[in-house]
Design a protein around this nucleic acid. Structure first.
Length: 800
DNA sequence: GAGTTTGAAACT
DNA sequence: CAGTTTCAAACTC
């Protein structure tokens, strides 16, 4: 099992949660203490979370009664028949995916509830036609998972966790039930302990939901209802897949460090049933205002509610409206940060034409950073890209990768970072791909032709903590090990006020080195220009993205604010290529690296500042941050009112340049030295005559350059215009241009005429000016004759 | 273009 | 923290 260490959270912004590999359990009901214990996050290394309550992965999944062997096969192999893949979980998320329509009413049984275990590492959920069992992947036990009332209500009764470690963690319940009517609903509830959650089911006619055979196409669209209850701040992804297969997967999230919203995508493509991807945000465990937004997805039914703190609650399931395959992500802002922010839901359909799938990004709340983790499972290695917008701004960008990687870009509103996740899931993977803890992935399938790898986004939880390389824990025994390679990239690009305090220390890139046997998970924080790099291999920009400017200039790299120059300013200029030879462009000597950029079109040798050396780059970043936590911060702080207040944060140390050469960082930034500087013989101050002289010279030179440039441009334009206007004469007239008649003979004749005029003037003792005038006039006449004869004859004659 | 100068970054 | 070394850009020829 892949485990995200506590460091991971510290590396990534709070707004985006990441989930680790989906835990695949070879057994439907894992009760292995060892596994659970291993998967448990270390208590000794608590990572500050966005919420005060330590996050604990809580997963309640519906497990089929099928024999373990059957389940194992279903989980470990990605079969087209698997219609449901449910994974995920952030700390207290519970995901349930009903995969099949069960004819038996109220499939949930107390007997299965007893199967709930505390094994966090293993959680498997599947629904068999015969019934539904619950397997708790979380640390908590559900002694009485829920009760079913006569009036189509399901009451979830949260019971205090059995283990001591569990008691400190917020409870979360997610359950799925398949009512008799074949309707399915999902409940993702993370409420307070001991508080029941009541779900009211709509009265639907029971259908003969006979047990369906795996791979059997569903004639009837599945209805899913997702209910999010609770007060947790964590985003809760809920994936609902078409109720085709009887196997669903639930990966338990290792724990407390991960706040994640995952979009599990099922590799399976179903021909008939509607596909629903629903991601809801988990309610705040702290009891703060929890907002849950659930986007409507295709035929599924999604119930969204802003969950107040106090359960029990009765929720009425509502119909969803969408008609196409979509993935809905509704990242919610942390209630702790914005307790009372009105729920805001924005759906951004992503047209992934080449993938034949759409991703719907739903934004639930405005300001709070959202944590979104999207995981995709696929039976076939593919390339997929997803763009997820978190926060107030939305954007969509699809990056077709030349590599078998998935790119998912997330922009957090107000953040200067773009978060882009690259997921490389290649090798043949089973439906139950290895997933990070807390990741819940499920795919539905129909319109979605093929799904690729898991896409995940991560956000550091610990503020102001430098990015660190995180090595996921190796998979534990008994877990499904996949050969799938996963890359995770997080790209900073745009400002995000909400999380900026946490991101200020973020290095331009971070790579989470894969742990042995962990499936080669890697994380990277990349500068925005990385997006550009990716786009060089042709990209598809999704329309309809509001507030997101798709990078169009391939050569232009977005840069972090450097030397007080705004990003837009720097971005407008072509980046200067570096010439590093010894530093591998992994030290601050390299401007590219120092600016958080990848080397691109540089002259460097042995460069490691690129995607191919993510690990090295991450280490270098970490090293730089260890030396100086503010290494990647702009050196020139922008003053309150204009450039006058701009000053170098550290100041320069010039000794011989007088701070009047570009050696001086202050001078280079076109600012004057300040008290921060330790320079000797500084001449870079306001009243310095040397500085003024240099400035004047520089201005004059710049003016000259501009004039020359303008003149060249104008001349080029005129020439171009002339050629454009004369072109018709060439083509339409069938003749040649006048100048083509200036043959050697014509030129000689013209010269003779001119000389004759000059001689005449000389013989007449005319002044030089008059002589010159005569010559010029004669030259004009010659030209006129040449031009006039151009269209008459091929051999114009010049006669004086 | 090669060589020198310079100062930040890295190292001790 | 200070001194030294390394490094790449800036500069000079």
């Amino acid at each position: 099992m892949e485990v995200v260490s506590p460091e991971l959270n510290s590396l990534l912004p709070d707004e985006i949660m990441d989930t680790e590999a989906i835990v695949m359990d070879d057994e439907p009901h894992s009760e292995s203490p060892a596994a659970s214990g291993q998967s448990l996050p270390s208590e000794d290394t608590p990572v500050p979370m966005e919420t005060d309550v330590p996050a604990v992965p809580e997963i309640v999944s519906l497990c089929s009664d099928a024999p373990p062997t059957q389940l194992t096969q279903a989980l470990t192999t990605s079969t087209p028949t698997d219609s449901t893949l449910c994974s995920t979980t952030s700390a207290t998320q519970l995901l349930l995916t009903p995969s099949t329509v069960s004819s038996s009413p109220l499939p949930l049984r107390p007997a299965t509830a007893s199967n709930l275990t505390c094994a966090t590492t293993k959680t498997t959920t599947s629904i068999s036609p015969a019934g539904i069992s619950l397997t708790s992947g979380g640390l908590q036990k559900l002694s009485a998972p829920f009760t079913l009332s006569a009036n189509h209500q399901i009451i979830l009764n949260k019971v205090a966790s059995s283990s001591g470690a569990d008691t400190t963690r917020s409870p979360g319940i997610t359950t799925t039930s398949t009512p008799p009517g074949g309707q399915k609903f999902m409940v993702t509830a993370i409420g307070k302990s001991g508080q029941p959650i009541v779900l009211q089911l709509p009265h639907t006619g029971s259908k003969p939901g006979s047990g369906q055979v795996l791979g059997e196409a569903k004639a009837h669209p599945q209805h899913f209802k997702v209910v999010t209850i609770g007060g947790r701040t964590d985003l809760k992804p809920v994936m609902v897949s078409q109720a085709v297969s009887s196997v669903s997967q639930v990966s338990s999230l290792q724990a407390q460090q991960l706040k994640t919203v995952q979009i599990a995508k099922k590799a399976q493509v179903s021909s008939a049933g509607p596909i629903k991807f629903i991601i809801t945000k988990a309610v705040n465990s702290k009891g703060l205002t929890a907002q849950t937004s659930v986007s409507n997805v295709i035929t599924g039914r999604v119930l969204s509610t802003s969950s107040p703190v106090t359960p029990p609650r009765t929720i009425t399931l509502s119909e969803t409206l969408s008609s196409t395959s979509k993935i809905a992500i509704s990242p919610l802002k942390s209630p702790s940060k914005v307790p009372s922010s009105p729920q805001k839901s924005v759906s951004l359909p992503l047209n992934m034409a080449h993938l034949g799938q759409q991703i719907l990004v739903q934004q639930s709340t405005a300001s709070s950073p959202a944590k979104v983790v999207c995981s995709q499972s696929t039976s076939q290695p593919m390339k997929s890209m997803q763009a997820v917008t978190v926060g107030t701004q939305q954007f969509k960008t699809i990056f077709p990768l030349s590599t078998p990687s998935n790119v998912q870009q997330i922009q957090v509103p107000g953040s200067r970072f773009h978060y882009v996740r690259l997921v490389t899931a290649t090798t043949g993977n089973s439906t139950g791909q290895a997933a990070s803890p807390g990741t819940n992935s499920s795919m539905t399938a129909k319109p979605m032709v093929v799904n690729t790898a898991q896409v995940r986004m991560s956000v550091p939880i610990v503020p102001a903590q430098p990015m660190k390389q995180v090595v996921p824990k190796p998979l534990t025994s008994g877990q499904v090990v996949t050969t799938q390679t996963q890359q995770r990239l997080i790209m900073p690009a745009t400002p995000l006020p909400q999380i900026q305090p946490n991101l200020t220390n973020l290095p331009p890139g971070t790579v989470l080195a894969p742990a042995p046997g962990s499936g080669n998970l890697s994380y990277a924080v990349l500068p925005a220009q990385y997006v550009t790099q990716l786009q060089q291999s042709a990209y598809v920009t999704l329309a309809g993205s509001a507030g997101f400017s798709t990078p169009t200039g391939i050569q232009t790299q977005a840069r972090l604010p450097l030397n007080g120059v705004s990003t837009s300013d720097t971005a407008s200029r072509p980046r200067k290529p570096c010439n590093c030879t010894k530093s591998q462009c992994l030290k601050l000597y390299c401007d590219c690296f120092a600016n958080g950029e990848f080397c691109q079109s540089c002259n460097c040798t042995n460069c490691s500042n690129n995607l191919e050396h993510e690990t090295e780059r991450a280490k270098a970043i970490k090293a730089c941050l260890d030396r100086n936590p503010e290494a990647f911060k702009p050196k020139i702080g922008k003053g309150k009112e204009g450039e006058a207040d701009r000053r170098h944060s550290k100041g320069c140390n010039c000794k011989r340049s007088g701070c009047l050469k570009n050696y001086c960082e202050c001078y280079e930034a076109k600012i004057m030295c300040s008290s921060n500087c330790k320079c000797v013989g500084c001449k870079n101050f306001e009243e310095s005559p040397e500085r003024k002289t240099l400035m004047h010279l520089a201005d004059a030179a710049e003016v000259r350059v501009q004039q020359q440039t303008a003149a060249k441009t104008k001349l080029s334009s005129q020439i171009s215009d002339l050629l454009t206007r004369t072109t018709p004469a060439i083509t339409s007239g069938g003749g040649r241009m006048p100048y083509t008649f200036v043959t050697k003979e014509v030129a000689e004749a013209t010269c003779e005429c001119l000389l004759e005029k000059a001689e005449q003037a000389e013989l007449n003792h005319q002044p030089q000016a008059a002589a010159e005038r005569m010559v010029l006039e004669e030259f004009g006449r010659c030209l006129m004759r040449i031009i006039s004869s151009a269209g008459k004859t091929d051999c114009p004659s010049i006669n004086c």
